[in-house]
Nucleic acid binder design. Sequence first.
DNA 1: AATATGTTATGAGCTGGTGTTAGAGGAGGA
DNA 2: TCCTCCTCTAACACCAGCTCATAACATATT
Lengths: 188, 188
Amino acid sequence: MLREDRQRILKETLRANPFLTDQELADRLQVSIQTIRLDRLALGIPELRARTREVAKRTYGQVKSLQSKEIFGELIDINLEQWAVSVIDCTEAMAFERSRVVRGHFIFAQADSLALALVNADVALTGLANIKFKRPVKVGEKAIARAEVLRRKGNKYVILVTTKVDGEAVFRGKFVVAAIEPAKGESV
Amino acid sequence: MLREDRQRILKETLRANPFLTDQELADRLQVSIQTIRLDRLALGIPELRARTREVAKRTYGQVKSLQSKEIFGELIDINLEQWAVSVIDCTEAMAFERSRVVRGHFIFAQADSLALALVNADVALTGLANIKFKRPVKVGEKAIARAEVLRRKGNKYVILVTTKVDGEAVFRGKFVVAAIEPAKGESV
DNA sequence: AATATGTTATGAGCTGGTGTTAGAGGAGGA
DNA sequence: TCCTCCTCTAACACCAGCTCATAACATATT
């Protein structure tokens, strides 16, 4: 096996699992531990403990933001039962690697959670949705979603969400959301 | 300062910042490094490197699964351009805390990515979707999505995704997906 | 045969610890 | 007063998982 190939495999192996010691890597790639160390040196890959530290520090306290802010968007303004606005910054993690186009369900997730936030109930669930992705959203763009209650019938709300990037509409969705009483688990 | 108080402060300090060495802790608490070690021993607190490793693995796993397996589901079987099946295990992280009902966009994300996987192209994008959440999915349930190409017109595919839990339909979605770049080589 | 390239070996030293044994210093009781 | 107990500190050997420097070896090329 050529050195070039081995170094490529080394990079890929560590990307899949950064918690491998040089010895384990040497065993996997069937070379000596020194070779692994030279390869790491050449590729600028830090040692196991430094990698572990990086992962820990990078993700420490960031998981929350990925779950709340990034996935669901940041609520900017809200007028319960009427309208609401949220913003989401599109990062690499949300996109297809190749095209850097944001995966549709992140845009959907922002719109969906905004629609749910609009309903004045302890528990609300999405029943139906009719959505259209007008143009792809790219990494780095800031998506601004605006949700509006079109009409309400009992515990059912029809909500229109329009998402824009730089003023240009990228997404439109009509959601039917049901407010569920906290006491009873009435399903949609 | 009493030992009890010191140990309480030690715990709190490490909770706030788990990346401190014994020496740094000794400096902060104005005691010797040995005292810190005895305290850690007494409190069952592991050493810095073990703590770092814990944080890294816990959050790394979360981020990774949140990005790949959990969000997009595990592809079980696929027949390109025809049908595909994926499974997703619903965890607490995917649900509303109060009701333990899985947020709709996770179910949507599974269906959407399954629809995209079906298209034999390097880049594919969702254009339209018409979806219905038939009943809420709870934490702990295993959602099985099956996607099927209904028809194809040029680079546009109409794909029906049906998601079931224990044989019961929980979600149905019709997706219109566009293939942007034809497949060149075998990708991931 | 000499040289270059890539790989492996060897040994000293580092960090951030563990585990154990030993001792210093003060508080309280007989 | 002495003695004991508790808490803290010190000292030493050892460990994993490295870095850094130096050298030996295999193979192919000139």
